[in-house]
Design a protein around this nucleic acid. Sequence first.
RNA 1: GGCGGCAUAGCCAAGCGGUAAGGCAGAGGACUGCAAAUCCUUUACCCCCAGUUCAAAUCUGGGUGCCGCCUCCA
Length: 391
Amino acid sequence: MRVYNTLSGRKEELVTLEPHRVKIYACGPTTYNYIHLGNARPLVVFDTLRRYLTYRGYDVTYVQNFTDVDDKIINRSREEGEEALKLAERYIDEYFEDADTLNILRADIHPRASQHIEDIIKTIEKLIDKGFAYEVDGDVFYRVKAFKEYGKLSGRSVEDMLSGARVEVDERKEEAVDFALWKAAKPGEPFWDSPWGQGRPGWHIECSVMATKYLGDTIDIHGGGSDLIFPHHENEIAQAEALTDKPFVRYWMHNGFLTINSEKMSKSLGNFFLLREVLDKFPADVVRFYLIATHYRSPLDFDDGKLEEARKALGRLKTTLMLVDEFQQNSVSADTDLKEIELLDKVNELRQEFIAAMNDDFNTARAIGHLFEISHLINSYLATAFQINAL
RNA sequence: GGCGGCAUAGCCAAGCGGUAAGGCAGAGGACUGCAAAUCCUUUACCCCCAGUUCAAAUCUGGGUGCCGCCUCCA
């Protein structure tokens, strides 16, 4: 089985740390509102990956976090007048409602940032001790220049980033590229006590802490949308590897975006459809089929017609299943004739091709193509078989 | 400006060195009382220009166009 690894930029043979075991960490949502169709893509992609690996005999451990401590949650809680953690919790429930409807299997563990503050603080302390972080006025920053391999995932150099910096620089940081591990609490914000005063963790630290806590220092597959490559995943590597001196992730997998008129569907652009709205109009299997019918790394453009098309295409596959069922119930003779043996042979061939396609970087588009070929083969056989039966 | 990705039929989408899977839509035909479903037939100068090769959609160089990341984002 080969997998495209963002880290190397090419497909690599999947060799897990332990044979027949695969540990997957998928970045979950920041729960400050309902998820949209674009958010659903990685859910379906990695859920399908997980199911396929299980089908292939792997013992899969799957962890997906919830970011329930975050600026956006805090902002939202101000707007709504609801306590931040309560609001986050509420949207976690809403998330599960959507994900369950979409038939996404629950992860083995769904850790939340808010429940791992102690672990996070300990990790930050260690990073300070090792010289990878420094405290300023209750904030703690990661010292990017101390981590020599910074930029290896996203293909950037620290020098380039410093010269092309577009962000207003926090004067207290040693370098513009340094990022927050711990943020001092401003009035009215949720906080936890720490050696640096009251505050809360930065976004990136929770993932590396929870991932290593539940899956070990080195995990097999870490997945997420390609917008997380930089800075989020880059920072996770910096945090985790500075601490353990071991490779944090063996295979980084990133899905492409869902777009509308070729533009990324995103909350900030406002061009999004809520998952639950879509699921009101189309059943989960159709939505899943639509999301998986294109290779996971390619962009996927959305418009009204696409789901309708997916519905028809999926219907074709389902019809075959129905016809087979009907045929088996009505078939008088249990004998398998020559034609049937021939059919079975071909179907089995196609089945192998299906597996080959899936094994090649999870090529669901090609694999689905083989499904239609199987469908067609069976339909043709049945068309003549029914005719003979009718005689 | 830096880094990366993509350009294949009316639409969507595989293929990644040996002359184009599959789906949707369309056309013609078969079957059926009508319909649905299904079957048969049919629909591609692979963005442009150079180059490498016996052979390129597939590799190299140069264009053009679109998109993403560099700030929160799946």
